[in-house]
Measured scan of single mutants.
Amino acid sequence: MGFKLLSKLLVYLTASIMAIASPLAFSVDSSGEYPTVSEIPVGEVRLYQIADGVWSHIATQSFDGAVYPSNGLIVRDGDELLLIDTAWGAKNTAALLAEIEKQIGLPVTRAVSTHFHDDRVGGVDVLRAAGVATYASPSTRRLAEVEGNEIPTHSLEGLSSSGDAVRFGPVELFYPGAAHSTDNLIVYVPSASVLYGGCAIYELSRTSAGNVADADLAEWPTSIERIQQHYPEAQFVIPGHGLPGGLDLLKHTTNVVKAHTNRSVVE
């Protein structure tokens, strides 16, 4: 069995187990497998329904001669939608809004960016022009300005110390501490036991640490421990890039980060 097929099978099995364990909360999309990078042309966006009122959005972007996937989250909030992270750029984010209108038909009224990198804030200006209120932590807003990236308009308070959590509509926002970046936030959907790890969490097929220019490698494993301790009931975990899975993604990420750190020390 090929690795790609095995990865998709694991996603399907995880979703099936969740649907059985929580039949009222989960209505997993039966329309197909989780979209992969090879299936999404740059400039297009796919939506994948995880649970009743919960979707991931998947886009792709060219970077350094390669094409990478990027995940975000959409959560229903009454007759409105909360968006977590842009679709990595203005063109993708405009396509995301169009796809949401086509498939869901509810307005996106608020959006949260989970850290300051372009795959999370690139497209904020498109959201703002569409009347979406954009939010991020003060740290993310400051770092985005320093980096020359787009800056969300509103500040999220109460997320300055490791372990801080605040309720934001249908989700809980959690600051686990520094990891992929010093400002990275985690998003949890309690009604569906869905954990969105953003770039602080890796997919299972990833074996290298990737972009760690703004990471705190020493603190990252401790931050992941905080996530595990705060959300032990999480059933569906979405990484910032690639295929979702279960809580095993947290341990896998820790292993990859520690291996990278150990290699760096040896070198």
Rank of each mutant, 00 (worst) to 15 (best):
S161D: 13
T253M: 01
T253Q: 00
T182A: 05
P152S: 12
E39W: 07
L250H: 01
E99M: 06
G198M: 04
V266Y: 06
T153M: 12
A209V: 10
N262I: 08
S70I: 02
L97S: 04
V212N: 12
S62C: 08
T114F: 01
E44P: 04
Y68G: 09
G148E: 05
Y196R: 01
I224M: 07
W88Q: 00
I74F: 05
W55N: 00
R226Q: 04
Y231W: 11
R120S: 10
P176V: 02
N184H: 02
I227Q: 02
R110P: 03
E219A: 10
Y202T: 05
V121S: 04
A144Q: 03
T182F: 15
L185R: 01
P244S: 12
E203R: 01
L10R: 11
I84L: 13
S16D: 06
A179L: 02
D77L: 09
R120A: 15
R142H: 12
G53Y: 04
G240A: 03
S205E: 12
A179V: 03
I227L: 11
E99H: 15
P23M: 06
A95M: 15
F174D: 02
F236P: 03
I100S: 15
R46G: 08
V75Y: 02
S30T: 06
A136S: 08
L243R: 13
G242S: 03
G131I: 04
P138L: 13
V67A: 05
Y68T: 09
G131S: 12
R128C: 04
P221G: 11
I20C: 07
L249T: 15
K258T: 10
D77C: 07
E33T: 09
G177E: 01
R142G: 10
V37A: 08
A51S: 08
V189I: 04
R206C: 08
R110K: 15
G72H: 00
L249A: 02
G78F: 15
T36V: 09
V256R: 14
Y68C: 06
A94Y: 13
V171N: 02
V146D: 12
R128E: 05
T86N: 01
I151R: 06
I224V: 10
Y231N: 03
V256N: 15
A90N: 13
Y68N: 08
E39H: 05
N149V: 11
D183L: 00
E219P: 09
N262P: 13
I17N: 03
R110G: 13
V121Y: 02
P107Y: 15
V212I: 06
R226D: 03
A213R: 13
W55R: 01
S181G: 01
V28S: 13
G242L: 02
P190M: 04
S30F: 06
T86A: 15
A87L: 02
V124R: 03
W88C: 00
L243D: 14
T134V: 12
Q49P: 11
A95Q: 09
S70V: 03
S139H: 15
S162T: 12
R142L: 10
M1E: 04
S38D: 08
V45K: 03
S7R: 07
Q103W: 11
Y48I: 08
T14P: 08
V237H: 00
F174Q: 08
E172K: 14
P41T: 05
H115D: 00
A200P: 06
E99L: 14
P107F: 15
S181P: 01
V171Y: 00
N255T: 11
Y231Q: 01
L250T: 13
P35H: 06
A234C: 04
L73V: 06
S38G: 10
E101P: 15
V189F: 12
T261K: 04
T222S: 10
V126T: 04
R46S: 07
G169T: 03
T140A: 03
G245A: 07
A259M: 05
I151D: 04
S155H: 07
M18C: 04
S7P: 15
D85P: 00
G43Q: 10
Y196V: 10
Y12V: 11
N211Y: 14
A21K: 07
D164S: 14
D125G: 10
T261R: 12
I74T: 08
S160M: 12
T36N: 08
M1C: 02
Y135P: 01
L9M: 08
Q228C: 15
V171R: 02
